[in-house]
Design a binder for these strands. Sequence first.
DNA 1: CACTTTTTTCAACGATCCTACATAATAATT
DNA 2: AATTATTATGTAGGATCGTTGAAAAAAGTG
Lengths: 190, 190
Amino acid sequence: MIYLEKQDWDMVLLDLMLPGMNGEEILSKIAEQSNTPVLIISAKLEQQAKIDALRSGADDYITKPFDIDEVSARIDSHLRRYRRLQELPMKKELRYKNIVIDTEAKKVVVEGKSLAFTAREYNILVLLMSSPNKIFTKENLFENVWNEPFYGDDNTINVHMSNLRSKLSKASPGVEYIETIWGMGYRLKS
Amino acid sequence: MIYLEKQDWDMVLLDLMLPGMNGEEILSKIAEQSNTPVLIISAKLEQQAKIDALRSGADDYITKPFDIDEVSARIDSHLRRYRRLQELPMKKELRYKNIVIDTEAKKVVVEGKSLAFTAREYNILVLLMSSPNKIFTKENLFENVWNEPFYGDDNTINVHMSNLRSKLSKASPGVEYIETIWGMGYRLKS
DNA sequence: CACTTTTTTCAACGATCCTACATAATAATT
DNA sequence: AATTATTATGTAGGATCGTTGAAAAAAGTG
């Protein structure tokens, strides 16, 4: 345990049959205190030992006698998984013309300028930009943005579209973003 | 593959011996295109098949006949690892404006002064500071801090936000830390 | 069990946003 | 050109959401 605490390890290979130590205790300490993946190597063949170890924090359990290539492949597999998740806390970004939306930050930038939209407006814009070629009917829009069934037309959507256009064209005059397809719906102008 | 692409799965259990499909191809497609953990279940006992699968993206390889408890424990182990890494790719020290959090000691220092927060307040603050640009919806907050599903709004979160702000501004008057994004959520003020 | 601390609930108020309505504009139809 | 159908826009309640203080409930402590 002294060694384990001294630095951050990428992975721990733990032999449960080490003399003079309780492997199970070590395992649960590591599992509690760190994120380090732990692979157990053990001569214990009993299923229950395996299951207990996996349940108390082990990432894998390999029984002796083991195939060195398999162990190596398993180590690499865990490292791969570990690194991949560490590194990619994805950012999703939508782009269309000079509009950029960072969907994590829910931030809309038009021509370099950050624009403020209401929640409804924002959701409509995201929906349109998620399928730039699709024509969204009012029903589509309503059911996606409002999450409610659509009972025919009031002109709520029209108003939101109007406001969206107005804000967008204030930020970037002369550019048309949203196209009206008469009798059908709306889509981004291509 | 049709089913796989339709939504984000927490995990895929893949039987390599499915009739009419090439399991190896499916595996590498998943591995390339997503972060989903893949556990292989297979009747192939040859070491080389195991090693190949692990090397081409599988997270585990379980051979038939298998012990259902072991499989279950392995599934949980991988899910645990996956979730844990998803949630805390955390630095030991979080900084934002004049706030410094030592996440090991769970100590918050604002403008040199050590501040006392309750557990809830602390967790909320850490979450916000872990992604300073992200807007956290109430659902986000609830599911991360409470670890419970979110059934619509009571105003518990509002109250905690209010208390957080109040404590912070007592320690450092005039600075605004937490921004309300109307109809969307909260985030740190940039 | 009594006491403290923390969390949640409640209520009142203010800020912001949504949508119904009226009216205008535009496109399709005759 | 006139008529009808559809969409656009300005405006004003009313609805929703957020804030805050206080009180109730729950959790933690000795």
